[in-house]
């Protein structure tokens, strides 16, 4: 460690350049990961906020919730077998607020208040993003196709669906506004399943895990796959960067390594020196990029869907260090191969 640090101090420019590149790549990774997370929240926090469980859609709906329709009889059969089942429907739509401005929302109506907002008839509970846009408790909202208006009864944090704020309404109002008396989706939390360890199977219904259900949301998987692919590429690039950089440095230092091996320094110690340098560079670069990405999270404009959790940051940082370790180790194979005699015969370094 001491030798590693001494060498870095003596060759500040060389290691600063590597650190700077790792910092920029890791910062970009954190920012894109934050955007991926933010967009994911913006797209599906309504579903992501639910506990682990199983979602059911009508088999004929072809994995599209808006085509699914669970009849009263089906609902009754499911509820008899699994009383803790929540039935809910989602309908994309809009409303006109008290200042005559049209707003896009995802109307949500649920039979159960354990996982969804309980709303009285004639009232609506909105996602808090609409409060930030000027809507207040007590405001009346309406729609050209409705014969009634709804009163804003409150706001909830982070309840969005398909990039629109959620608007929780009573099932009776949902029936009246959208002229339907069926529910689209059934949900049973794993912790509430009765009489069986696995998710129950119902005839005519298709079961989805939380992640599978998220992927039925239009654009969700395409959006997430694109961003995650960029993150994976950046991680791979950082690993290659470490491998190439240490390869070049090691080639320059083969003479020194040979002499050190000649005087009896263990090959393992030379590897430890390289790993220590990789670790110092990674940690310093990551501390800087984590600080800046967290500051960015605080300062990012409200409209920007950016959400970077400490869990994601920690996981990405760990992956960075592991990939850096692999990259450096691969490049270090030359250290193992170098023969002391070659270095001695090469002359002064």
């Amino acid at each position: 460690m001491k030798m590693a640090w001494k060498e870095m101090k003596k060759n500040k420019l060389r290691y600063t350049i590597l650190g700077l590149i790792v910092f920029l790549i890791s910062l970009l990774t954190f920012i894109i990961s934050g955007l991926a997370n933010g967009l994911s929240q913006d797209n599906a926090s309504l579903i992501k906020n639910l506990p682990d469980g199983t979602f059911y859609l009508e088999e004929e709906a072809d994995e599209t919730y808006s085509f699914s329709s669970l009849s009263d009889q089906q609902q009754q059969e499911i509820a008899e077998e699994q009383p803790a089942t929540a039935f809910f429907s989602i309908q994309m739509g809009n409303f006109i607020d008290s200042s005559d401005k049209q707003r896009s929302v995802a109307y949500v109506s649920a039979s159960d208040s354990t996982y969804f907002q309980e709303v009285h008839s004639g009232e609506v509970i909105l996602d808090a993003s609409l409060e930030e846009e000027g809507i207040a408790v007590g405001d009346e909202i309406t729609n050209e196709q409705w014969d009634q208006s709804l009163t804003v009864a409150g706001f909830v944090d982070q309840e969005k669906y398909s990039h629109s704020p959620a608007a929780f309404i009573n099932p009776n109002d949902f029936q009246a506004l959208f002229h339907t008396d069926t529910m689209q989706i059934a949900f049973i939390a794993d912790s509430a399943i009765k009489n069986t360890d696995d998710a129950p199977v119902f005839k005519g219904l298709q079961a989805f895990s939380n992640n599978e259900f998220l992927n039925t949301i239009p654009s969700y998987s395409a959006e997430q796959m694109s961003l995650n692919m960029i993150v994976i590429f950046l991680l791979v690039i950082s690993g290659m960067l470490f491998a190439i950089f240490f390869y070049m440095i090691n080639v320059q230092k083969l003479g020194i390594y040979g002499i050190l091996k000649a005087i009896g320094v263990k090959t393992g110690k030379l590897f430890q020196m390289m790993w220590a340098q990789m670790f110092i560079i990674s940690v310093v670069s990551l501390i800087l990029s984590i600080s800046i990405s967290q500051a960015f999270q605080l300062l990012a404009p409200n409209g920007m869907p950016f959400h970077l959790t400490w869990e994601t940051t920690g996981l990405l940082s760990l992956v960075f260090v592991i990939i850096g370790f692999i990259g450096a180790t691969l490049s270090g194979i030359q250290i193992k191969r170098v023969e002391p005699i070659q270095a001695i015969q090469q002359g002064e370094m």
Binding site: M3, K6, E7, K9, K10, N11, G255, I256, I259, L260, K261, A262, I263, G264, V265, K266, A343, I344, G347, E348, M349
Partner: peptide, 26 residues
């Protein structure tokens, strides 16, 4: 053999071959 080189043998090469990032004392 490495242990013997490290503990019981000393080497002076045609060129000094010192480690460039360590001081004389180091």
């Amino acid at each position: 053999l490495r242990q013997i080189r490290a503990k019981d043998f000393g080497f002076i090469f045609q060129f000094a071959h010192l480690v460039p990032f360590l001081t004389v004392q180091e």
